[in-house]
């Protein structure tokens, strides 16, 4: 396979990230419904989570848990090698980022509920219209 094909196909995880990111970004900008905006924002954030997760993943890598004694016993018998670990830190970071994402979504939804109580609508253009009349 040529070098170019490798960069296109071999980096498919990043293509997925970019596709999700742009979809989310587009939804945030283009949609007038506040809930849809938040869904777009979520998509945007999740794409970044995938970016982090895929950078820590190694082909054939396992969870980085220190093996117990029986594993080392097997090791001597079957002449297998130490396992390859995936990098745990990006996953840990993303756990925090997910929590932040949930907090943002919760706050945004709470605001939408209050906006609906105050304006009777969650469509951006109708809210704008009411603000201009007032």
């Amino acid at each position: 396979m040529s070098h170019e094909m490798n960069t296109v196909l071999g980096l498919y995880n990043y293509w997925i990230v970019i596709f999700l990111m742009m979809t989310g970004f587009y939804v945030v900008i283009a949609k007038g419904n506040l809930v849809k905006k938040i869904i777009g924002l979520n998509l945007f954030q999740i794409s970044v989570f995938l970016l982090y997760l895929s950078m820590g993943k190694i082909n054939g890598g396992t969870t980085p848990i220190y093996p117990d004694k029986s594993f080392f016993a097997d090791l001597q018998d079957q002449s297998s090698t130490m396992p390859v670990y995936s990098h745990p830190l990006p996953s840990v970071l993303i756990l925090t980022a997910i929590v932040v994402g949930i907090a943002t979504t919760a706050l945004a939804l709470a605001l939408i509920v209050r906006i609906h109580e105050a304006y009777g609508t969650i469509e951006e253009d109708e809210i704008l219209l009411q603000d201009q009349e007032a």
Binding site: V28, L107, A108, L111, R114, A118, D131
Partner: peptide
């Protein structure tokens, strides 16, 4: 204030 906060949030 609600819409302003929402806009800022996004």
């Amino acid at each position: 204030a609600l819409t302003a906060a929402f806009q800022y949030l996004v």
